[in-house]
């Protein structure tokens, strides 16, 4: 980012960047360090400051089977929602990229889910999948009791995952389509000249060429499934039935704000932070190594 023409001024840049630095300090660095402090200490119930707890908070959550349940569930949630959403978005983008007549209309509708608030989609999908209502619930009239997210944990989890995947379609579609349109037309034409049919070209030419974008989206989607699921879980299942849709973010919220166990919630936050940082790190490493289009 070196420039020849720059301004030299001792005060002005600080005035410009000061407000943002201040906000970042107060609302990012301070809370993050505070989370570390809480994770390694224990608040005494009768006041009088925090006691050093070392790794006890972490050992406590790691020995808790319920915690491992939420970790595994979150991982499954992340993989399933990411896979589903990316697959649908990629398929749509590949066909929209052929730019046939009238494609523009489809293209603009495919972006819509990006605009929808997770809780709004959650409420809509809760109705669509409600066992009493007349959409998916209508199957219960044919085979009684075959669909019941209110008591069956797998049904409830599947419902939340489908909703999450639907919400991600817009974002993934935009990125996939942009990547596909970046591929030089000549490559596609050369493939056609060599006798490759359109479907073959999709699989063997376009897919490998958009691999960097796909990988970027993969990481972004996984991170977002770990962190953005709160609005859905809270409006659709509240973690139920009997905790079977409780994911990591939701447990942090429940333990921290309902159970007032700040140290436990902070320790869980640190675990989630490390996970997100690790994923971001993997992405940077990979992008550094593999982003060679030409």
């Amino acid at each position: 980012m070196e420039r020849r023409a720059v301004y030299r001024n001792k005060v002005l840049p600080w005035l410009l960047i000061g407000p943002q630095l201040l906000l970042v300090l107060v609302f990012f660095y301070w809370p993050t360090s505070q989370a570390l402090y809480w994770a390694f200490t224990l608040e005494q119930p009768w006041g009088g400051g925090n006691l050093w707890a070392g790794l006890d908070n972490f050992l406590y959550i790691f020995r808790d089977d319920r915690y491992w349940g939420t970790v595994l569930r979150s991982a499954f949630y992340a993989l399933a929602a990411t896979g589903l959403s990316m697959l649908v978005a990629l398929t749509l983008a590949s066909f929209v990229d052929r730019a046939l007549k009238g494609t523009k209309l489809f293209q603009s509708v495919f972006i819509w889910p990006y605009a929808i608030a997770a809780p709004a989609a959650g409420v809509a999908f809760r109705f669509i999948f409600s066992p009493e209502a007349g959409l998916v619930g209508a199957v219960n009239d044919i085979w009684p009791g075959i669909w019941d997210p209110a008591t069956n944990g797998m049904h409830a989890l599947a419902m939340v995952i489908v909703c999450h995947a639907w919400l991600g379609i817009g974002y993934n579609f935009v990125f996939f389509l942009a990547a596909l349109q970046m591929i030089p037309r000549s490559i596609n034409e050369a493939g056609a000249m060599d006798g490759a049919r359109p479907f073959r070209r999709m699989l063997d030419l376009q897919l490998p060429l958009i691999a960097p974008t796909a990988f970027f989206l993969l990481i972004m989607n996984i991170i977002s499934s770990f962190t953005d699921s709160f609005g859905l879980i809270d409006t659709m299942t509240e973690g139920g039935p009997i905790g079977q849709t409780e994911v990591m973010v939701y447990k942090i919220y429940v333990d921290g704000f309902k159970g007032l166990d700040y140290s436990g919630a902070a320790a869980q936050s640190i675990v989630l932070m490390l996970l997100v940082i690790g994923l971001t790190f993997v992405q940077f490493k990979w992008v550094e190594r593999r982003v060679h289009y030409n």
Binding site: Q20, L21, V24, V26, F27, F28, Y29, W30, P31, T32, Q34, A35, W38, I223, T227, D228, F230, V249, I252, Y253, G256, F257, Y262, A265, A266, S269, L272, M273, V276, I277, T280
Partner: peptide, 21 residues
């Protein structure tokens, strides 16, 4: 970098201490 790093951790992850602040 001080500003850029904040991209890494969404608000949801550090929600408890941010509430305290």
């Amino acid at each position: 970098w001080l500003i850029f790093i904040t991209l890494m951790l969404p608000l949801e992850v550090r929600i408890v201490p941010t509430y305290a602040i």
